[in-house]
Design a protein around this nucleic acid. Structure first.
Lengths: 177, 177
DNA sequence: GATTAATATATGAGTTTTCATATTAAATGA
DNA sequence: TCATTTAATATGAAAACTCATATATTAATC
């Protein structure tokens, strides 16, 4: 509360938000996804449904919980989404013999065809997008994002962190409320 | 349909999704935001409400539509969110004298105090996060994201594209459905 | 091996969010 | 100026989403 600039209109001073990492991430994700998500919608799918299909193409028979993680959706939502997808004939749910709590989700031929088609389109879209980025940014972006995810993720047991007996790992980011 | 690898369990082949730019963006945004958004929740705010406050600190008296854009939320949602925030005493809505369709949103002292506090925390959180990124990734990320946004955004009339009379501008990204 | 804890999925219920459209006001243009 | 189009916000109703918790099953502990 110092300079009472009235800021009547057409100011657009840089400000905090437009340079805030979390905003840049969200805005970039939103804007980039909006493009391809139109294609997804046109195929009659909602975004998490598309993610599920892509996921299952990578790993058929995934469990609901895994799919929820990758599709960035909550478990109860995923449960309902999978039920809907089953009704539409895109996937089938099968109980896991070894662990009867689990539900394994498999692509139907129809689901696989749709998934394959969309993944192909996604790859093209991605290539075009990256090509349009000036200079090295296209090349830099993915590694930087992976680096960020590594720092943030609860470090999946894949490439397991052997020999780490003192509980130093997975310390919570300090400075948070 | 060639190698019928049964992929029974514990495979985790790299796959498409985990290297797909749009997934990396969404996952990184989600993971990074999750951290700070806990603080936001603890302050009794939902995410778009926090964005509105931050926004208004940058530009008090913004219109609903502007806020919707920056808060990455739809207009009708923003309308309702602003109404709720007004009830809570965080903002006030004032009609624009010049254009009576517009609603100008202003911070109350209470809203400003909360916004200021959260922005301070956000800056700290951001700094910590960037510092934790290995090597140059911390420095590379923001420019790369800005570059991406530039490519994607409908190029705001700021730094306006004068002399563009043939309708070549704003061509849609090709290769999309 | 009975008891307790943890995991995986499902579901009821309330809240949010979206979609289409209404409403009001300004801009355009004939 | 009057009609037409565009812009800004609001709103009803349907769909989607979240939260807490139920249920079923496996793992752990004693």
């Amino acid at each position: 509360m110092q300079a009472p600039r009235e800021n009547t209109d057409s100011d657009a001073s840089p400000g905090f938000v437009s340079d805030y990492l979390l905003y840049l991430l969200a805005a970039a994700s939103d804007a980039a996804s909006a493009q391809f998500h139109q294609t997804v919608r046109a195929a009659g799918l909602r975004v998490p449904e598309w993610r599920v299909l892509a996921c299952l193409l990578d790993e058929d028979g995934a469990m609901i919980t895994q799919l929820a993680t990758v599709a960035l959706a909550e478990q109860s939502r995923l449960t309902r989404i999978i039920l809907q997808m089953e009704k539409r004939g895109l996937v089938v749910r099968r109980g896991d013999a070894a662990d009867k709590r689990r539900v394994r989700v498999h692509l139907t031929p129809q689901g696989r065809a749709l998934a394959t088609d969309l993944v192909t389109q996604a790859k093209v879209h991605e290539a075009v997008l990256i090509r349009r980025l000036s200079g090295g940014d296209g090349a830099r972006l993915k590694p930087a994002l992976r680096s960020l995810l590594e720092v943030l993720e609860p470090s999946m047991p894949e490439t397991a962190p052997r020999e780490m007996h003192q509980k130093t790992g997975s310390q919570v980011i300090e400075n948070m409320d």
